Simulated scan of single mutants.
Amino acid sequence: MKKINLFFLPSRNITLTIPLVLTVGFIAGLFWDTGVLKNYLLTATVLMIYPTMIGFKIKEIVDLSHTRLLLAASVINFVLVPALAYILGVLFLLGDPQLFAGLAIASLLPTSNMTIAFTHFGKGNVPAAVKLTVLSLVAGSLLAPWYLLVMVGGYIHIDLLAVLKNISIVVFLPLFLGVFTYHLLLKKYSQEQFEKSVKPWLPAVTAWGMVYMLFTGISTNARLIVSQPGLLLSSLLVWVVFYFVNYFISIKAGRLFFNRKDSVTLVFGTVLRNLAISIGLAAASFGVTAAFMVSLAFLFQGQSAAWFIRLNDKYKIFPETGRHMLKTRQAK
Rank of each mutant, 00 (worst) to 15 (best):
I49R: 03
A162W: 12
K123W: 07
I54V: 14
F172G: 11
L9F: 11
F121M: 15
K131F: 00
E192L: 07
F180T: 00
I87S: 15
G124R: 12
A283S: 13
Y247G: 08
L142I: 14
A276T: 14
K188C: 03
L103F: 04
S168K: 00
F286C: 10
L103Q: 03
W32V: 08
V138L: 15
G178E: 01
D313V: 00
L185D: 00
P82D: 06
V288S: 15
G287A: 11
P203T: 06
I105A: 13
A207P: 12
A207L: 10
K332G: 15
G25K: 10
V271Y: 14
I27S: 09
F298W: 07
T216W: 13
L30A: 05
A306P: 01
F172V: 05
G154C: 01
L299G: 09
V79R: 01
L186I: 03
L109S: 03
L272V: 11
I14W: 07
V170A: 14
S107Y: 05
A129T: 01
R310L: 05
K131A: 15
S219G: 06
T328G: 14
M210V: 12
D96Q: 07
F31V: 09
S107K: 05
F258P: 02
D63T: 04
A283E: 07
I277N: 07
M293E: 15
T133I: 06
I225M: 14
I87H: 03
F298N: 07
F268S: 04
S136C: 12
R329W: 12
G269D: 10
W208V: 03
L91G: 00
A72E: 01
V271T: 13
N113Q: 13
I14Q: 09
L42I: 09
V288M: 08
L236M: 13
L164W: 11
S197K: 13
K316I: 05
P127T: 01
I49H: 01
V205W: 00
N5H: 06
P127E: 02
V138I: 15
Y247W: 06
F121E: 09
V179R: 00
G254M: 02
Y315D: 05
K314Q: 12
N125R: 06
V294Q: 07
P203A: 12
N259K: 03
T23A: 15
A222W: 05
A284L: 12
G102N: 11
H66L: 03
G35V: 02
K2A: 06
K123A: 13
N274P: 04
N166M: 11
E320Y: 09
K59P: 01
L137Y: 04
L266A: 05
I76W: 01
W146K: 04
I218S: 13
L99M: 15
F26S: 04
L84M: 13
T216D: 12
F215H: 10
R255F: 00
V241T: 11
A144N: 12
T17M: 15
A204H: 10
M210P: 02
K199G: 11
G230T: 02
A73E: 04
K188D: 03
M48P: 02
R310A: 05
L233N: 00
L71G: 00
A297L: 08
R12L: 06
L231F: 10
S235Y: 01
V264E: 10
A104T: 08
K165P: 00
Q303G: 02
S74A: 13
R12N: 11
Y50M: 02
K261G: 08
F215V: 07
